[in-house]
Computed example of a mutant assay.
Amino acid sequence: MTLSGRLSVRVAAVCVAVGAAFAPAARAADPVTLNIVDVAGDLQLTQKGFEAFKAKYPNLVSNITFTNAPAPQLPGKIKAMQAAGRSDIDLVLTGTDALAAGIEQNLWEKLLPDHAAVFPGVLDNYAPGPRKMQDLAQGYGLEVAYMPAGPLLEYNPAKVTDPPKTPEQLLQWCKAHPNKLIYARPANSGPGRTFLMGLPYVLGDKDPQDPIHGWDKTWAFLKQLNDCVPYYPGGTSAVMKELGEGTRDMTVTVTGWDINPRALGIVPAEFRVQAFDNMTWVNDAHYMVIPKGVPKDKLDVLYKLMNFMLEPAQQALTYDDGYFYPGPAIKGVTVEQAPAQSQAVLKKFGRPEYAKLLADHPHVLPLSAAAMVAAFQKWDREVGAAKTK
């Protein structure tokens, strides 16, 4: 090559390098729209956090749509979408019910350990009780809210002067006051399933973690109780409405479903709760899960969003109005960090006795995914079949 030729090549190379240096950067991906479906009532705790993420990162999220749906119907809907190659739902907020059903049907994206790099230290940030609940997700979701739930009885003190302290006393009261006790279908009710899962401990069944072979006393008790229960609503809200209106005098509840309806005026503030003498707390949690099939551009945003929801500022919002008491899942988030309204509600409608009850009685995890699905199916088939609405 001649000298002039070599100079031409060098000049061309320099021009290319300079051109690359001053060329506009590759266009960032367009902001995405996210569709979040809630089957646990979790948006009451978290919607403000999701909206804060959208406000902070308009370059990532253009819009978030929020939809509520019944937990029992969601797995079938997602399975049908996945079979059709569609991805209409980007994030699901669920309790242990749809979490379990989705794990059983292989509907959820595996987050841990598969994507541990994008969730650094997440498991170490959970408080001890929530950390155990996180194990129930089997890596398919991240816990976003926590409640040491129940089971508890809630009653109208004007109508129930001597509240039951044992399941036997509850059965006797129910028979003496037919149609005055009500609870919702466990497959779509936190209080309903907590009652279902707590009974084997109180009744002394041989294996509280095996609803098919270890719950002889529980199933016998529920079938007897069925005779004096008028019907089983499809969700807890209907139960609280009837309790508040005076149609019923007693129901089963959990800490959050005791505090929040009274704070909202659905249930009178003076209504009381009673724990069984030898109760065991069955804890509860809400989870963020991603259905399989969500495209990668959305997955990257969702991972960032999930990390954001586990930061202290967003976790403090989960104190809410006592709906999922206390609420936060990560360490060190105190009620003093909660919004002023949350602090005022809990001061007025919280129960001073909860601290002692939570300290004095043992705590256990809910059933595993497979066992929970089996328990729901057996209850639907053998207890609630003729009375569920």
Rank of each mutant, 00 (worst) to 15 (best):
A117H: 09
A69Q: 03
E382L: 11
A158V: 09
P291E: 09
K175I: 15
A80Y: 00
T334F: 11
P151F: 03
L203S: 04
Q315G: 12
F66R: 05
G85T: 13
G198E: 05
V252W: 00
Q47R: 14
A340T: 13
V16Q: 06
L196C: 00
K296V: 11
K387A: 07
Y303P: 09
N59I: 00
Q209H: 11
V61G: 01
E311I: 02
P24H: 00
P70I: 02
G204S: 03
D258S: 15
Q172V: 12
L317R: 09
H361C: 07
P291T: 10
L170F: 10
I103K: 13
P208R: 03
V335L: 10
T94F: 06
V294R: 11
P291Y: 05
G41A: 06
A359W: 00
V373F: 05
D124Q: 14
F271V: 06
T251G: 04
Q172C: 08
P291N: 10
H361N: 01
R193W: 15
M197W: 12
E143K: 07
G350H: 02
T2H: 07
A52E: 03
S87Q: 15
L142E: 01
K79H: 13
D210W: 06
P233D: 01
V37K: 00
G214P: 10
P186E: 02
T253G: 00
F271P: 01
W257S: 03
L243T: 11
P326E: 14
A275R: 12
S189M: 05
V92W: 09
H177Y: 09
D284P: 04
I259R: 03
A116I: 02
N63R: 11
Y183P: 02
L199I: 14
K206E: 14
Q377N: 14
K79S: 12
G332C: 04
L181E: 07
A98Y: 02
V229E: 11
N106I: 09
A359S: 10
A101D: 08
N63P: 04
P167D: 10
P163M: 09
V92D: 08
A17Y: 02
K389M: 09
